[in-house]
């Protein structure tokens, strides 16, 4: 079973088999990063442009390392601010970059749909590295890879996502992926952070953290996205930590072998306590390692590589 597509814009349109094919390929690439010489020639002669219209450190670095380990030529283009404030439109930027004949565009943009917009207007393969509050497919794939490594599979797993779901592209991509793979997803957060029509997402929703954590196999804490809030959605960090923060006490409601995940960057002491984050149940650094492998797999597959 392979994964053949021009672009990776979202998890929502993928089949479960596509996701599994990407994860299997990523497992094969893990080894590259553990060698002395961390490079394979798979993408020699291919040009990858990383277009970042929104500040990002870890995602950009992760993509760049992944591309370099595949021997691709990588170019970074960073620009903050929307097209309207910048003067040049997204369309013009895309046309200009298109004229330089890149093979793959990795794009992060503050507007939902921006990656799709670009993909519709270029012959290059487009990888969405996060578009507004829409999706962040490679983050979900690395999360799924981490869960599969720790749990062996997805069927019947209870996965609880806690935090600012409505503003989170990470949550949206994870929800689509987990649903497709057979996990049961529970969302938890104050009502102000939960999506209004969650029925469409096929998930359970609660504002009671205890209920959400009961029997959970996987708990994912999300970053409080203060930068995406136009009006306040919770009274204070202190109150958030009290009712929705993960800590060593409340986590005991979960299954004993629960794993704790966080897409980073973390607000320590707000969505998750330092004890928990640095403790044995946390798989946060494993997520980061898997991130490079997953991005290598996606870049490789979209460049025409064969799934493993």
């Amino acid at each position: 079973m392979g994964f053949v597509a021009k672009d990776l814009i979202a998890i929502e349109p993928l089949e479960a088999a596509d996701i599994i094919a990407i994860l299997d390929t990523a497992e094969g690439f893990l080894d590259v990063s553990r060698r002395d010489v961390k490079k394979v020639p798979a993408l020699r002669g291919k040009t990858v442009v990383n277009l970042f219209f929104e500040p990002s450190t870890r995602t950009r670095v992760s993509f760049e390392i992944a591309e370099k380990r595949l021997s691709a030529d990588t170019i970074n283009f960073s620009s903050t601010g929307s097209s309207t404030s910048k003067g040049e439109t997204l369309l013009d930027t895309v046309k200009n970059i298109e004229a330089m004949a890149p093979d793959i565009l990795v794009i992060r943009h503050p507007a939902a749909g921006a990656a799709q917009f670009v993909a519709d207007r270029t012959s290059a393969a487009v990888i969405n590295a996060g578009d507004g509050r829409h999706e962040h497919p490679t983050q979900a794939l690395l999360d799924l890879m981490t869960i599969r490594q720790k749990k062996g599979g997805f069927d019947g797993l209870k996965v609880t996502i806690v935090g600012d779901i409505a503003n989170s592209r990470v949550a949206r991509s994870n929800i689509f992926g987990l649903n497709k793979l057979g996990a049961k997803v529970t969302l938890c957060g104050p009502g102000t952070m939960l999506p209004n029509k969650h029925e469409a997402l096929g998930v359970e929703v609660t504002s009671r953290l205890e209920a959400a954590l009961e029997g959970a196999d996987v708990v994912m804490a999300l970053r409080i996205q203060k930068e995406r809030q136009s009006t306040p959605t919770f009274p204070s960090d202190r109150e958030y930590a009290k009712y929705f923060g993960l800590n060593s006490q409340v986590i005991d409601l979960c299954e004993p072998d629960v794993i704790i995940m966080h897409p980073g960057p973390v607000n320590r002491g707000v969505e998750i306590s330092s004890n928990l984050l640095d403790g044995s149940r946390s798989v946060v650094l494993g997520q980061v390692e898997n991130g490079v492998a997953v991005r290598m797999a996606v870049v490789y597959l979209l460049a025409g590589g064969v799934a493993q």
Binding site: E12, A112, G113, G132, R133, H134, E135, R169, R172, P195, N196, K197, H198, E199, A200, L201
Partner: peptide, 14 residues
């Protein structure tokens, strides 16, 4: 604001 906006993550108007 509705099921589609829940899927797309676009800022929505109820």
């Amino acid at each position: 604001e509705g099921e589609v906006s829940a899927l797309l993550g676009l800022p929505a108007i109820p």
